[in-house]
């Protein structure tokens, strides 16, 4: 096994990040390092290796947890940008939504999200969501290592 790839969390809200961070780190089997970006622009810099992240360029994350509601460049813009970048478009993006109502979910998938987690008021529910997410992506689905499969554009995961 190689080094566990980073999970990128794009979240401006400290409370939400804390909750997210806790739920991921509490999952014992999840050893992946977490990186937080506060804005959409920062996330894109991180992913594209520009500005502050140009040198050294960080490794491509294996999963992005993306908040849609960001100041300035928001989650939608970020996702849109990712999907036109060949090296980034295969990264699963889990959108963190405020509600699970239909319009929100439709929006997530229409912009190319791989899944969603709802930002819950009940933090235990949030933990469970993250845990399910973790199991799904890291245990159930055998996922090719992103680094190795960088150029396999045809991969259907």
């Amino acid at each position: 096994m190689k080094t566990d790839p980073t999970i990128l969390i794009v979240e401006d809200n400290d409370d939400d990040y804390e909750a997210c961070y806790h739920s991921l780190s509490k999952s014992s089997s999840l050893a992946n390092p977490l990186h937080r970006c506060r804005t959409g622009d920062e996330a894109l810099s991180y992913l594209l290796g520009t500005d502050a992240y140009a040198n050294p360029r960080p490794a491509t994350p294996c999963l992005i947890l993306l908040d849609l509601n960001l100041p300035g460049t928001d989650g939608r813009d970020v996702l849109h940008r990712l999907k036109i970048e060949p090296t980034l478009k295969l990264i699963p993006v889990i959108v963190m939504t405020v509600s699970d109502d239909e319009s929100d979910l439709r929006e997530c998938y229409s912009i190319g999200a791989s899944g969603y987690v709802m930002k819950p008021i009940d933090i235990d529910g949030f933990f469970q969501s993250i845990a399910r997410l973790h199991n799904h992506w890291f245990k159930v689905i055998l996922q090719p290592a992103p680094n190795e499969k960088e150029d396999e554009e045809e991969l259907d995961w």
Binding site: D15, A19, H22, N69, V98, S99, P120, I121, D122, D124
Partner: peptide, 18 residues
């Protein structure tokens, strides 16, 4: 509005929970 209003509410919930 609902999304934005929920944000602090969620924050309160999270902090209370922690």
């Amino acid at each position: 509005a609902s999304h934005d209003l929920k944000e602090p509410l969620r924050g309160i919930a999270i902090n209370a929970n922690f």
